[in-house]
Amino acid sequence: MENDWTKPAAVAIPKEGFFKDQEQQGRYGPIFPKTPACYGFSIIAKIIPGHEENFYEYGRNLAEGVAGTPDLLASLKLHYLRWNLFQIKGDTYFQYMGIFDTDFDKYTEDAVAIFAATGRSTVFENLEGFPKDWRTNAGAFIKFMRDHQCPSFMEYGEYPYVSADEIKKALKLKAAFSNMLDQMQ
C-alpha cells in the first residue's frame, strides 16, 4: 500500500534503474521509479580539473540564496539535497544526491530556470561534458543528468512515500493543536 506510512518499506531496484513492467514515459524519456524514499537522483560526474574551489563557493552562495529567499528551490519539491566531492585515482568527482516528491522529468525546465536565475552560472558548469547551451536547451541539460544518473539498487523509507508537503502539513497541525491547548489554559 503506497500510502501506509506507518510501515517502513524497502525496495530493491533492478540494475537498469527501472522496473521493466512499470516503466513510464516522461517528456524527456523513461521516468525513474518512485520508491519508499520518494523520487530522486544521484548524479555522479568528473569535475574539470582545478575547479574544486568553485564547488565550495557555489555551496556558500546557494546557502546565502536560500537564507535570503527561502522558497528559492520550492518548485523542485525537494526533501533533501546532499552534495559531495571525492577522489578516485587522483580525479575529483562530484556527487549530487537529491530526494524529491516528483519525477525530475516533470519540472526540468523549472530546474533550469532556477539555476539560470540563482547565479550567473551553475555548479554543473564545472563538470566535464556539461552542455554549454544548458540555459536554452533543456533537452541537452536533462540528457547530461540522465547520462550521469547512477540508479540506486535499494531504497528505504522509515515513513515511506510521504511527501514534504504532507510532513509540513502534519507539523503545522501539531503546532496548531499546541496553540489551541495553550488557548484553553
Binding site: G26, R27, Y28, K106, Y107, E109, A138, G139
Partner: peptide, 10 residues
C-alpha cells in the same frame, strides 16, 4: 514539449 506537453503531462 515545454508548453503543451507540460500542460498535458503535469
Amino acid at each position: 514539449i515545454r508548453q503543451f506537453e507540460f500542460a498535458q503531462n503535469v
